[in-house]
Design a protein around this nucleic acid. Structure first.
Lengths: 181, 181
DNA sequence: ATAAAATACTACCGACCGGTCGGGTGTAAA
DNA sequence: TTTACACCCGACCGGTCGGTAGTATTTTAT
């Protein structure tokens, strides 16, 4: 991927994270990458297409080079949870959540991309838990991800990161809904 | 409160919930209540002021007529959790969460209103847990609310309400992060 | 009945939105 | 040297945004 293209996607991610789908403007995005708005349309057909690019990049970064869960599933699990939580803590929010609430049926491809993003993430998490012999790994993954996402609410409203920290701890110990290790 | 005023606030809530702060337009709001846009400005100074009205109404509805927790804290708890979850399940989303992500520093009063909304809600939850002798009631309330909010992610992305149902069950049993009843 | 206050309307404002157009410019292959 | 392509730009499109001015209509209080 060309570096300019990657930079556009990364800046788009920041804008989506901060201002949501509606609130992010192509004008702002162009300014952040040092281009004019019209130039963006040589690389992307429209604003909606940015969504799937942003989420694909994010998924890549989140999963790339994870420890092989077949060798040490607990290490893979801690690493994955740690990556997610670190992003939430430094960026204060989750792009995916903002987009999930922000895209509607008028942008169906973006909506599909968001759904897929969270499904893939949950499946990867469930894969690891399954290797660890955790019962109902799909539900457990969904619940833990929900807890992490929900914790970002407190970061954005009051700056309190403790709920996220507690969510990470409990996810590490897997003491969620009586599924303790 | 005059009925028209209340209707405006209720419709504004639906718009904020569905489209977020930026995505909700005064034009749409006016159409929903059978008025012209300019007429809204005889009741509200600006769009931002709607946020605190919406959240005040929501807090009122959520807390009004709750069973007295000093008589039966478990009943009060179940009722409160049930109300929150019912709204999430029928409306698919939480207005507060959408606004929390949607308002920024350019609308400081709205931002403050959102912070206050969640703080008050958490405090009320914590009050009940305190009466029940639950350890660290503030943290417990924050964590449980986070879990409920996070569960709405799955409702909006895939329509799956099971994470929310599990969150309600675990909240009812208070088996959160090892704080089991 | 009348004055005052609330509420409603039409019409408009400047700013910004996503997106398109035609015309450049630099590079690299033929 | 020509051709081709990728990229970038200023200017512009129709449309929507939050908000306002001025005026008409309805409600309320005296």
């Amino acid at each position: 991927m060309k570096t300019t293209l990657r930079k556009i996607v990364m800046e788009a991610r920041e804008l989506f994270r901060e201002h949501g789908y509606d609130g992010a403007s192509m004008q702002d995005l162009a300014a952040r990458v040092g281009l004019k708005k019209a130039s963006l349309y040589t690389r992307f057909p429209n604003k909606e297409a940015l969504v799937s690019e942003v989420l694909t990049l994010t998924l890549e970064e989140t999963l790339k080079g994870l420890p092989d869960p077949r060798e040490d599933w607990q290490l893979a699990w801690q690493t994955l949870i740690g990556r997610i939580a670190k992003t939430f803590e430094t960026r204060k929010r989750c792009v995916g959540l903002h987009l999930a609430y922000g895209v509607t049926s008028v942008t169906p491809e973006a909506q599909a991309a968001v759904s897929q993003f969270f499904n893939v993430l949950r499946e990867r998490m469930a894969d690891i838990l399954r290797l660890g012999g955790i019962p109902q790994p799909d539900s457990a993954a969904a619940d833990i991800l929900a807890q992490l996402e929900g914790a970002t609410l407190w970061i954005t409203t009051s700056g309190d990161v403790e709920p996220l920290r507690r969510a990470v701890k409990s996810a590490s110990r897997l003491d969620v809904f009586g599924r303790k290790i």
